[in-house]
Simulated scan of single mutants.
Amino acid sequence: MSLNSAIPFLVLFHSCIIMVTLASDPDPVFDFCIPTTISKTTCKNSSLATVEDFVFPGIKHPGKFTETGFASIPVNVKVFPGLNTLGMSLARADFEVGGVNVPHFHPRATEVAYVLEGKIYSGFVDTKNKIFAKVIERGEVMVFPKGLVHFQMNVGDSRATILGSFDSENPGLVKIPSAVFGSEIKEELLEKAFGLSSEEIAKLRKKLTPH
């Protein structure tokens, strides 16, 4: 896994001490680091690496579709060890007609989405609640800035496919509906926040709570 480096500085100014910390993902110090089966934080001997460590065949076909008509296959360091320390990952996303990738965000990465097939209504919302959205088609690209809520929907008359690229080996994923209603947030808070009845919240929780 990528390690964060932090360099502290002490600055003296008129008898005051100010602590400043700079943090970033360091550049790799090896050509590559294939994790060992014993520890994900140590690399196996580079002489034992093979080309198979750097090939992932798992996105040749769509994944399993959800009830929203959406299927996603993440290609991150958890499933593709060859990405370890390289600071990047991918995801294949497929949409049935009318399929929706619900509003979500990636806490650790910016995403660039490339449309392989179809027509996708795609967009994101910034921190001022301004929406940036349009229909993008085959061959077009859209970027979703790190940490901002974004979404997609197939508005064409056939299946659509997107390839997403991330600047993190493990971008993370927070789906807004399940994070809000599928968690253990107190019901009273949700009632006040969304103006919903306890019965409506119960229905949403039953639908969105992981089983």
Rank of each mutant, 00 (worst) to 15 (best):
F151Q: 00
T50W: 09
G195E: 03
E184A: 13
F95S: 09
G99R: 06
M153S: 02
E137T: 06
V180L: 13
D94Y: 14
F70S: 15
K119P: 05
D167H: 02
E52N: 13
M19C: 04
N101C: 12
P107N: 10
E191P: 05
F80N: 00
F132H: 15
L173Q: 05
V75K: 03
A202M: 03
N101T: 04
T161A: 14
K192E: 15
E52M: 11
G63I: 06
K60G: 11
A6C: 12
P177W: 04
E67C: 10
L196A: 01
A193H: 04
M1R: 05
S122Y: 11
V29M: 04
K186Q: 09
N76R: 06
K203S: 04
G87I: 01
R138Y: 00
L83Y: 05
I131N: 11
V55T: 05
A179Y: 01
Y121F: 15
L90Y: 14
E137H: 07
M88E: 02
A6Y: 10
L208F: 10
S158C: 04
P171G: 07
I7N: 06
G58I: 04
F80V: 02
D94G: 04
N129Y: 09
D157W: 12
E111I: 14
N170M: 07
E200I: 00
R205N: 04
V141Y: 07
F151A: 00
P26Q: 04
P74Y: 13
H14Y: 04
P35G: 02
G147M: 01
R92M: 12
D27G: 07
S39T: 10
F32D: 10
E140D: 07
D94K: 08
I38E: 15
R108L: 12
M1I: 05
P74Q: 10
A202C: 01
E117W: 03
H61P: 01
K203M: 04
L163D: 08
A202Q: 09
N101Y: 13
F105D: 08
L148H: 00
D167M: 02
V112H: 09
K192Y: 00
V100L: 15
E117N: 09
K78M: 03
L148P: 07
L116H: 10
E187W: 02
K128P: 03
G69E: 15
A109F: 12
I7K: 11
K175Q: 06
P35D: 01
T66H: 11
S47P: 02
I176V: 14
F32Y: 12
S158T: 13
S39L: 08
F56N: 07
T209L: 01
A160D: 12
S122C: 14
V77W: 02
F194Y: 11
T36P: 09
F65V: 13
E52T: 12
T50A: 07
M19I: 04
T50I: 06
D31F: 00
P8C: 07
V102M: 14
K146H: 04
E169V: 00
F132M: 10
G182H: 07
F70H: 15
V102N: 12
K119H: 11
I34K: 00
T209H: 01
P145T: 01
A71W: 14
V51L: 08
T50L: 07
R138V: 08
R92D: 05
